[in-house]
Design a binder for these strands. Structure first.
Lengths: 339, 339
DNA sequence: CAAAACACCGAAAACGTTTTCGTAGAATTA
DNA sequence: TAATTCTACGAAAACGTTTTCGGTGTTTTG
């Protein structure tokens, strides 16, 4: 139960001053070789490690970055965290994670807590509720204090900060085009409400691909699912009413739910209905049939976000008022759900 | 870009002392109502929030708990984090997450970093490499400093700390018995190497169930998969050589891989082969057929771990040298993979 | 041999809080 | 009116570092 060793205790023990100990441990030439080695050996023997909190207070930086995401049980967010953590650790940073649980209030509370000295900067993706309200005062408050934010995936367009996104419009466009090239003509889209920007953008890409080829857009062929947990019935109804031969889903959960519903209705995937999904996660790889997906590269996005943030943190703190939006290329991963 | 407000700045601005400001903000009766409200209003207007680092240094506690897990992209661990985070936030704590990536060295480095003042206590699950080496010096170092640890799932038996586990032996026992009751007689087990304690214990439970009924144990009916990423071929070979009518898998990934392999071989699940898996995650719910699983209740385990840790942290710090091992009950969730 | 240079170390400030203690003046008591 | 108690505030220490500055005593220089 030996209490934590401090400079002061070493100093007392060795009958020198605190400053001498500090300097000796940093190999300062101000201290004689004799004293230096004596102190260093003592420190090593008793495994001295400087207290992080004291260092943070002194240096006015914590070497920690805060991550705020809606949920961690979503595979995409988990991969992002993984990427953030990897890059952060490489550069000597640690990661503090808070979950908003898709709630605006929790997002605000968590940001407030972290912003008071706990971290040097944020990596975050907005909660659904925040997207719906379009209330970004908490983000502004933080940036006004000079604390950098890097947003990813679910971003606020009118906040000045770095952003890491995928080109949702383009990706949906390509995916839709892919289905059209497979001679599917009666396409359906399973999306989220428009206030979730990825839902809106992917819908836009879907429509653009159809328009580009001169097809008209049937709004009834677009389903917007609000409640992701209990999406089964809505999706089933949707599939019953339209006679689709191709489906685009904005996440793999919708896709696999649709796939199972279709098979339950006696329709074959991919022969009768081809399916493409966003989010290349576990489900896509292991569903039956496996799903053709658009890979979102969460790991890469997380890594980029962390790298960007740390670069900002360590740039000589002159107001580097240029903000970048990095668009991560997606890739279509073909599997069994498309012919 | 208004720099962060401090007590000192408020004091200067309002021409009082720092201590007066501090007391006023904590509503001390030592300060006249007049001065008090003046200071409080000023603080509110400019949104003063005390600096967490300074508080941590002063109070010698950070109100943060460190979580070290092997991977975050595994659904089980993600649910645990979710539970930890929920309980921690309820009690005013924040969560710092580090990933060991199943590496001993990274586990040690991360623990060392966190232990130097960054957090008040640990919630953790050991890396595979640590389990293999049985080297727990880093854990001892931490506990010797008086910093509490709560371990879950992959625990070190001979470290004195609180533990949250499921009764792996019992659960495997019950699952095996379940298969036997379904009149499956030729059972196979897909497990991990024995140094992963959950693998060892589940194997033990499997064997016990067989012995209890007087069946003899065929070691060739037990596959131990080392490399979880590329388990496909090994599992396929295993299924080719034995003519199993029932399978127990120690995680859902093995189970769904086996399920697909079997179907590829023309064997029907569950008619020809029934399958039960540990870990009730996404795959089990959405695979075809859906999998009967043993729910590990990660959320609950995480919540319990956090609660236990915080209780320890806030107990009057007298050496509360009693350690508890909580066994979380599992439940068998029947789905399509068993008849 | 006096002056300058140098080697070695300690005191103290700073980071932002909280808290204990001291103290001035005002109000109360005897 | 003198002694006492309050009221309202400030000074300073403490948490554990790093770093600047100053000050010894010894060695080198002219």
């Amino acid at each position: 139960m030996a209490q934590k060793l401090t400079l002061k205790k070493i100093a007392q023990e060795l009958k020198v001053s605190i400053s001498t100990v500090s300097k000796a441990l940093r190999d300062s030439h101000e201290i004689s070789v004799e004293t230096r080695t004596k102190i260093q050996e003592y420190a090593k023997q008793y495994n001295f490690k400087p207290n992080n909190i004291a260092l943070s207070l002194k240096n006015q930086k914590t070497k920690k970055i805060g991550v705020i995401i809606p949920e961690i049980v979503h595979h995409f967010f988990a991969t992002v965290i993984s990427g953030v953590e990897r890059v952060a650790n490489e550069k000597g940073y640690q990661v503090i994670i808070c979950l908003s649980g898709e709630s605006f209030d929790k997002e605000v509370v968590n940001m407030d807590m972290l912003a008071n000295g706990s971290i040097d900067g944020f990596v975050m993706s907005l909660s659904k509720e925040t997207m719906e309200r379009q209330d970004f005062h908490h983000l502004r408050e933080v940036t006004n204090q000079g604390m950098p934010i890097v947003m990813f995936d679910r971003v606020a367009d009118d906040i000045a900060c770095d952003k890491i996104i995928i080109d949702d419009v383009e990706a949906a466009n390509k995916a839709t085009d892919f289905l059209l090239r497979k001679n599917r003509r009666n396409l359906g889209l399973i999306s989220t409400p428009d206030y979730v920007n990825v839902g809106r953008l992917r819908t836009q890409g879907f429509k653009e691909a159809l328009m580009k080829r001169g097809y008209e857009i049937d709004e009834s062929a677009i389903l917007k699912v609000e409640d992701i947990e209990n999406c089964g019935d809505k999706i089933k109804d949707f599939l019953m009413t339209g006679n689709y031969d191709g489906l685009l889903a904005v996440n793999e959960l919708f896709a696999v739910t649709a796939s199972k519903a279709l098979q339950g209705m006696g329709r074959k995937v991919p022969d009768d209905v081809a399916i493409v999904a966003f989010t290349d996660g576990m489900l896509s790889k292991y569903a039956s049939p496996t799903l053709t997906t658009i890979g979102q590269k969460g790991e890469e996005m997380g890594g980029l976000a962390a790298a960007k943030l740390i670069q900002k943190l360590e740039s000589d703190h002159q107001e580097d008022e240029t903000y970048e939006t990095v668009i991560v290329k997606t890739s279509l991963i073909e599997r069994e759900s498309t012919p």
